[in-house]
Design a protein around this nucleic acid. Structure first.
Lengths: 235, 235
DNA sequence: CGACCCCTTGAGGGCCTTCAATCCATGTGG
DNA sequence: CCACATGGATTGAAGGCCCTCAAGGGGTCG
């Protein structure tokens, strides 16, 4: 496994009020007066691909709202094997366990250049005490995480490798069907689909030959969603 | 799939203050005065094995605290296939989505005779508005659900059928190692391990022959946890 | 007693894993 | 400029595990 390295550059305190993705984020329901209760800096950070947001058993001092890019959440099993259990994209919140646990229980690594807002746990605590508007939103984010976990893990753990890969690509193109998708390393693909990297590679090749995906640049593909839907159904 | 049927018998309003499992449950942090804010009945209900707590797309009007017994949470995939994604046991809270969604998004079915407390969503809402003590507890329960989901789904979706079954049995005996475990139907076992019922049956038989489990009554087994730990590691 | 349900066991075949070799792009140093 | 090392991706071959289809066993209930 690659040794992850934080390469963050501080870009200044976030302007939460005018945040472009606020409607997606944790603070969507907050009102003007609520922001006065924020007394710790919320940092806007940039991470390069491969950089680590947080690691297993690190002190959990903040949650992260993803502004752009993509983060893989890696679950480490008792025997040391790793499985990617979730992908965080724009609007998602990573590291919610900071609100209830002393340390992180996963590894969060960027698979693309990623912009995040780092919100100290104390900020959430203060806001929660002051405004009930955050409660509902927080619970929604908890449920979102749970729901995504169930979907991700069942969709990508059952059926043939063909079906799993098809479902993953459909998942990745669900929001912007016409946009190309950046593929992961075959090792990451394997860790998502619970197959070996060789099988991941073979299945990608097969999809290319079948015209289900078309590579327009290195590891950047356009997806035939109709074809993939058929592949996701029939083995 | 069996057609589930609700066979609940009302046993009277729960005495939350003196609840035997309150230290595990949602209301552990509540104080005497908090209970005055409960204006809707919290029912203690009994369900037989096979009975359904709630179903997919049913109006979500309550959460359920499990007092005893066991409940399987069934996730229905887009193509209709079902997978068991979690098991609820004593102290767990089922149906948390009632707090953020209009309807349930899973099926919850008892696999054993089960005692639950049915807490209307409005009760949680009222209490949340009145006392901040519930917030933290609620978030802990959310995280518990998320954490269990990750563990359950990764442990039981990777490795050989032998490893998965071993991990499941270890999971079931984690709290009371010496106690016998009631096995599930082979169909349910398959739906947990993401294998066919035949493979589940064969693997159970193999474990019996190897002495990893010893059947002391119909579908009731004693587990050799050391042996199972070895089986969970080495394929 | 027969119907039914669940469980068990067998045989064949397909898919994935494992081990291994090769290819390709990138970057480094002589 | 090129040789070489490196890391990822691809492809091949052999073998094993699990799925599918099928038949039969054992318990319960009308």
């Amino acid at each position: 496994m690659k040794t992850p390295q934080i390469e963050a550059a501080w870009k200044g305190t976030a302007a939460c009020r005018n945040c472009a993705i606020r409607h997606l984020a944790l603070f969507s329901e907050l009102e003007e007066t609520d922001f006065q209760h924020i007394h710790l800096p919320i940092e806007e950070l940039h991470f390069d691909a491969g950089a680590q947001l947080y690691g297993l058993d690190e002190p959990a001092r903040a949650v992260f709202t993803i502004r752009s890019g993509m983060v893989k959440l890696v679950h480490v099993q008792a025997d040391g094997t790793q499985r990617i259990v979730r992908l965080f994209r724009r609007g998602a919140v990573a590291g919610l366990e900071a609100l209830v646990r002393p340390s992180y229980e996963h590894i969060a690594i960027c698979v693309q250049p990623t912009e995040v807002c780092r919100i100290p746990r104390e900020v959430i605590g203060q806001l929660q005490a002051e405004t009930p508007r955050l409660h509902r939103r927080l619970m929604e984010k908890w449920y979102e995480a749970l729901s995504v976990a169930d979907d991700f893990l069942t969709d990508l753990s059952t059926g043939s490798a063909r079906q799993r890969l098809a479902r993953l690509l459909l998942h990745l193109t669900a929001e912007q069907p016409e946009q190309p998708v950046r593929l992961f390393t075959r090792e990451d693909l394997g860790a998502m689909l619970a197959v070996t990297l060789e099988t991941a590679s073979r299945t990608i090749s097969e999809f290319k030959r079948a015209g289900l995906i078309r590579e327009i640049a290195h590891n950047l593909v356009l997806c035939d969603r109709d074809g993939l839907m058929a592949a996701a159904r029939t083995d």
